[in-house]
């Protein structure tokens, strides 16, 4: 007979909160697993009343939404927690922020309501700094990329090497000169499978125009949300935001 965990089942979920956080500076080198581990430890240190799964090996109930890749910074990462006790969102935000390493910064916590977070996010806005790239070269490459209907690239994914088309996912690609010797690429990318990441777009620029930055690009995700007609993104927490000050649960 397999043993069953002794004692009562875990306390029920009384509330859910949604969190927007940033991954900044040297912490951009964290993988999604690293971020998840840091959050689990931070939540324990902040004594956030997490709800746990049942079973021999209970886990805090945390739902992640599309993590930025290792090496990419982000101002707009999202996660949802299930709580076993009421909590005040702003107090939770500041306690969790203080318990996470500097560079994992909790920007906003709101009570969860309405549609699932994943249903409110289908695109990302990126800013990619390209040190060592001249703006005119980038402009030519982007123009060539946008002229095409299809640009295939290859990348190692967790399912092995895959070839996929980058072009349809790119809703917007624009460029400008940065403040020093760098060029800046602005991107709006629709979330697809496999996800098209900034480095895939850069690989595509190499494919179409031979653009090869000599220094590593520095991508920052600025926004995630639902893509609107005009190419902007709707804030996924906007429908929940009015409740930010009240106690949830």
């Amino acid at each position: 007979m397999p043993r069953q965990p002794e004692g009562p089942p875990p306390p029920p979920v009384v509330a859910r909160v949604r969190v927007r956080f940033a991954k900044r500076g040297r912490l951009r080198f964290l993988s999604h697993r690293d971020v998840a581990r840091a959050f689990e430890r931070g939540l324990r240190r902040a004594e956030v009343p997490m709800a746990y799964s049942a079973g021999f090996n209970p886990h805090p109930r945390i739902s992640w939404v599309g993590a930025a890749p290792t090496g990419a910074a982000s101002e707009a990462e999202y996660v949802e927690f299930a709580l076993s006790a009421p909590a005040e969102p702003e107090r939770l935000r500041s306690a969790l922020d203080a318990s996470l390493p500097p560079g994992l910064d909790v920007l906003r916590v709101v009570p969860a309501g309405g549609a699932a977070l994943a249903e409110r996010i289908n695109a990302s806005r990126w800013l990619v700094r390209l040190p060592s790239v001249a703006e005119p070269a980038l402009r030519d490459a982007v123009a060539e990329f946008l002229r095409r209907d299809s640009v295939e690239v290859e990348r190692a994914t967790k399912d092995g090497r895959r070839r996929f088309d980058v072009r349809p996912a790119v809703i917007l690609a624009d460029c400008r000169a940065g403040n020093d010797t760098c060029a800046i690429l602005d991107l709006v990318v629709r979330h697809t499978t496999p996800a098209v990441r900034p480095d895939d777009v850069l690989t595509a620029l190499d494919v179409v125009a031979g653009l090869r930055p000599s220094a590593p690009p520095e991508p920052i995700r600025l926004e995630q949300g639902r893509l609107l007609e005009d190419g902007t993104l709707a804030d996924p927490l906007a429908p929940d935001r009015n409740d930010a000050g009240r106690l949830v649960g």
Binding site: E47, P49, P86, E88, L92, A95, L247
Partner: peptide, 8 residues
Amino acid sequence: AGGPAVGG
């Protein structure tokens, strides 16, 4: 033993 630091 204590209550949650961030609770209500």
